[in-house]
Amino acid sequence: MTSAALRMHAHRLGWLASMLALFCSTAAQAWGPAAHRIVAQLAEGQLQADARVKVRQLLTLSDARHLSDVANWADDLREDPDQREFARATARLHYVNFADSACRFEADRICANGQCVVAAIDHYAAILADSSRPLAERAEALRFVVHFVGDVHQPLHAGYRPDRGGNQYQVRIDGKGSNLHSVWDSRVTASARLGWSRHAERLARMAPLADASEDPVAWARQSCRLTRDAGIYPDSRNIDSAYLERMRPIAERQMRLAGKRLANVLNRALD
């Protein structure tokens, strides 16, 4: 092979490696927030006409068209140097830590000063519903509500064990170290092998869930009981495909509940 041909071959290999790295990086980043986007898309499909119009008006203030566009904003704050202080100030609003396996909600003990996801949903839903508030404030409240309703349905955002919602529960998956929270944030949903939009479309075609709950406390307690009863904490620290297959229906039901309940929150707030 001539030197020119070698250079061309090396160039092609370099280009291929770059594209592969880009693909892998994008895939890794995309699955992390997938569940939040799925919940948002499911909710948008269940909005009443008036709420849908008002949601779109508020989304324009975020340069967004769909709820799924803002579903991860509350997490993305951490990556914005100008918003990191705000991200730290709102960090405790993403979860609630129950005291024990009874999953009792003792507000003074586990949500003091409104610093938990349950109180955050009520707080920002009230701002969203208040038409006397500035539109920018209500648009921010919409972004928080969309995210926090998703959060409270991720079981490990409402657990009771002293392991920071599974962040300190070390596991191995695909021969690499990880933690249980990370597995539930990404790998359980990713095991469906669908992009988030197609995954949402598949879930939307399922029979509607019978659910009349309007209480974020009840949602959090339900998530807490799942961490206790549903086998979320594996028997082995080695996570295999069988575990992901068992957990995915649980995660999908939680996303469907979150989508329905988020739509109900928005319909009530914007009616």
Rank of each mutant, 00 (worst) to 15 (best):
A220V: 15
Y169P: 08
G166T: 08
A242I: 02
Q222D: 15
R228F: 03
P234G: 04
E44F: 09
P249Y: 01
E137H: 03
H94G: 01
L13H: 04
R7T: 02
V117K: 07
L22R: 09
S25K: 02
L257S: 09
S132P: 07
T2G: 13
H36M: 02
R187H: 12
S101K: 13
A91D: 15
L257D: 13
R37I: 08
K54T: 04
F86G: 11
H181K: 11
W73P: 04
R138H: 00
R172Y: 13
R225Y: 13
A136P: 00
D229R: 08
A34I: 12
R37V: 07
A64E: 08
F98A: 02
R92G: 15
A212N: 09
F105S: 08
D100Q: 01
A269C: 05
L142D: 02
A210G: 09
L22C: 12
L42G: 04
D229Y: 08
N264I: 10
V183G: 13
A242R: 01
H94T: 06
L257W: 08
A28I: 13
V188T: 07
D76H: 06
D235A: 14
L142T: 01
A99Q: 09
A28S: 14
A89R: 13
F148Y: 07
F86H: 13
V152A: 04
R198T: 14
A230Q: 08
F98T: 01
R161E: 12
Q57A: 14
A89M: 12
A192H: 04
C224P: 08
A89E: 13
V265W: 00
I239G: 01
F148A: 09
D69N: 09
A204E: 01
A35N: 12
Q154I: 12
N179R: 02
D151Q: 06
R164C: 12
Q168P: 03
S197E: 15
H153T: 07
H36F: 05
A40N: 10
H9I: 15
G259R: 03
A210M: 08
P249R: 06
L58Y: 03
E106A: 09
Q254R: 11
A49G: 03
A5E: 14
D151R: 06
R37C: 07
V55I: 07
A71E: 11
G114S: 01
K260T: 10
L61N: 05
A220M: 07
L128Q: 03
A10R: 11
P234A: 03
T26W: 15
W31S: 15
K54E: 15
V53H: 09
G45K: 12
A99I: 06
C224L: 10
H199R: 09
G14I: 05
D211K: 00
R205N: 05
Y243S: 00
F23K: 07
A200S: 12
R161S: 04
R202Q: 05
V265G: 05
W15P: 02
